[in-house]
């Protein structure tokens, strides 16, 4: 009876190796018993077999019964955060690529078709990759959550003191703030990788962009790019911490301060390092017909350019202090009420 073998195979192929042998023997016995009862000693026909098998039902369902617990790649508990992260990542990617596309068209409108094709191609290549990585991360989480989860849930007795505090509106971090920042950081990352050469002064000629005088030294940029990506990732980590916490706490405050300080130190090392800025910046400005050497403007701009490192540092440290004070005020406010 080939049909019986096919049925048993359809059930057992869905089960783990260790159960297969035993269950297939048991099932065969069951089917024979059912046939025997039906036939009362007569030879079973193909038709009878079919009836018995349809009584047993869909092999998929039977296999599920044997497996007992439902298995998830990403279970119901992780599903919502999974969808949220996926949305943020996809929105960021689409935004970043669209911005790059827009910049390219402004710079070189003639090649719009090429850029458009690039734009579409980059969708095809990066979006599946992003979806893949996000999914992979969550599958990983789910797997380890299941491994620990059992012990944690059984051992830990819940008590009312475990209840989370009611959100305090003054300390609360609105979800859209960190989300917007994450999108922003990812866009900056994409631009740092793909279009750093547009970071500079744009020289227009008859309404069309003729050249860009870059701020950064193109010869050394690739080395610095890693540092820039590191800084931006630190920013993303900080925003994720805010998102997860949902409110300002002392720990979150210390953590964000820690990240901010590291960021400032890395930037300091970077901007004061050798060859970070474009060494030919002034000459290139002159070549682009934006300045004439020796003019008053030239002097002013040269002065500003030479103090760029200092200005950057001042801005950064100012920003850091501002950030720390602002967060601290939020933490304090929550405590007073």
């Amino acid at each position: 009876m080939e049909m019986i073998d096919r049925y048993i195979y359809a059930v057992t192929q869905r089960l783990s190796q260790s159960q297969r042998e035993d269950i297939s023997q048991e099932l065969r016995g069951l089917i024979t018993d059912m046939l025997e009862e039906r036939m009362e000693g007569l030879q079973a026909s193909e038709n009878d077999v079919e009836q018995v098998l349809s009584e047993l039902g869909d092999p998929k369902k039977l296999a599920q019964q044997y497996q007992g617990t439902k298995k998830y790649i990403i279970g119901p508990e992780l599903y919502d955060p999974f969808i949220m992260v996926m949305k943020v990542v996809l929105i960021s990617i689409v935004a970043a690529m669209s911005i790059i596309f827009a910049i390219q068209i402004i710079i070189n409108p003639v090649n719009i078709l090429d850029y458009f094709i690039d734009y579409i191609v980059s969708f095809v290549t990066t979006i599946p990759m992003a979806i893949g990585w996000v999914t992979f991360g969550f599958v990983f989480l789910e797997y380890f959550q299941n491994v620990d989860g059992k012990d944690l849930n059984l051992e830990k007795d819940w008590s009312p003191s475990d209840l989370p505090q009611l959100p305090d509106p003054k300390r609360q971090i609105k979800r859209h703030e960190p989300l917007t920042s994450i999108v922003f950081f990812i866009i900056l990352m994409a631009m740092a990788v793909f279009s750093s050469n547009y970071f500079g002064i744009w020289a227009f000629n008859n309404g069309e962009l003729s050249t860009v005088v870059p701020f950064l030294n193109e010869a050394t940029y690739n080395g610095y790019m890693l540092l820039i990506l590191l800084i931006l990732s630190l920013g993303v980590i900080k925003e994720i911490a805010k998102l997860v916490n949902g409110k300002w706490t002392n720990r979150l405050f210390l953590f964000t301060m820690f990240i901010d300080v590291i960021t400032v130190i890395v930037v300091m090392v970077m901007v004061s390092g050798p060859d970070f800025w474009n060494p030919l910046f002034m000459q290139e400005l002159v070549q682009a017909d934006m300045l004439t050497e020796g003019s008053d403007n030239y002097q002013t701009i040269e002065n500003i350019w030479e103090s760029t490192t200092l200005l950057t540092l001042l801005l950064l440290i100012g920003g850091l202090v501002w950030n720390i004070i602002a967060s601290w005020v939020k933490v304090r406010k929550g405590k007073e009420s």
Binding site: I23, L30, E37, Y66
Partner: peptide, 25 residues
């Protein structure tokens, strides 16, 4: 398994073999 299915059904406890066999395991 199957003798159990028959017995239970005779006594008015309705159960499918597809439910009982996995339950036994």
């Amino acid at each position: 398994g199957y003798s159990l299915v028959t017995k239970l059904n005779e006594e008015g406890i309705h159960v499918e073999p597809g439910t009982l066999y996995p339950l036994l395991r």
